[in-house]
């Protein structure tokens, strides 16, 4: 808890049966983390404002639908179920849907081995997909190799918006946004110019926060990193 929060009103709730007390305004995801309960998430990072777009972090709070814990604030007396068969099933389905579009090779998994989508696939034991392969065929979203430092694979992008927030909210360079609709939606640099020709200053923050193989470090491409 930071000092700013300490003066605030505390509220009580339970997460998976465990009673936790957190300052008002804390999200369920943060409260769970404080209590040592890890809720999986793709779009959120503690360094950013949550946006609740991936819905991997959903939890049961007794409402009609599951709530995205990264954006939902804790309420007094709330009973949160962060893990159940239903929730597992939900997360597994979302992961599988994202994977159905995913390229066969993730540049992140190949090098630093920390592709978070593939890590979820492992957690949920997903080895085969029943959906058609969205990454096959000529309809691919394409790549952008124009930056001297960052490789862009739009096919591996899950539109989590972490890079957008890294660029706009952390570094304030305001280069990355979204373009296109529906299946053609993707991240874009400036007014959809190649990254290397855009106003990108190559700070690498987008690459550092990307959870997948979409924005990766060119200098370690194809090199399996084993940190000893």
């Amino acid at each position: 808890m930071t000092e700013k929060q300490s003066g605030q009103k505390l509220i009580s709730l339970t997460i998976d049966g465990k009673t936790v007390r957190v300052p008002e305004g804390t999200t369920i995801w943060e409260a769970a983390r404080e209590a040592g309960i890890d809720i999986p998430v793709l779009c959120h990072s503690p360094r950013m404002e949550p946006v609740g777009v991936c819905r991997i972090c959903v939890v049961e709070i007794g409402e009609r639908v599951l709530a995205a814990s990264c954006v939902r604030k804790c309420e007094e007396g709330m009973q949160v179920q962060a893990d159940s068969d239903d929730i597992q099933q939900h997360r597994k389905m979302l992961t599988a849907l994202l994977l159905s579009d995913y390229p066969q090779q993730s540049a992140r998994e190949e090098s630093t081995g920390d592709d978070e989508l593939l890590a979820l696939a492992r957690d949920y034991g997903i080895t085969e997909l029943t959906f058609p392969d969205g990454a096959a065929g000529p309809e691919g979203r394409g790549t952008d190799g124009s930056s001297p430092v960052i490789a862009v694979d739009h096919q591996a992008c899950i539109l989590c918006d972490r890079c957008i927030r890294a660029c706009d909210d952390i570094q304030h360079n305001d280069v990355i946004g979204r373009t296109g609709k529906g299946y053609q939606a993707r991240i874009a640099f400036d007014l959809n110019t190649p990254m290397g020709e855009s106003s990108c200053v190559a700070c690498g923050e987008c690459m550092a926060v990307c959870p997948t193989g979409a924005l990766t470090n060119k200098s370690v491409a194809g090199l399996k990193i084993v940190v000893t």
Binding site: S100, L118, A121, T127, A136, G222, L223, K224, I225
Partner: peptide, 19 residues
């Protein structure tokens, strides 16, 4: 059917230390 694998296509491996 599409298969999901975390096995990687990297051709080389580097043992790396963090400083």
């Amino acid at each position: 059917m599409k298969t999901v694998t975390s096995s990687n296509g990297a051709s080389r491996t580097a043992q790396v230390k963090a400083v």
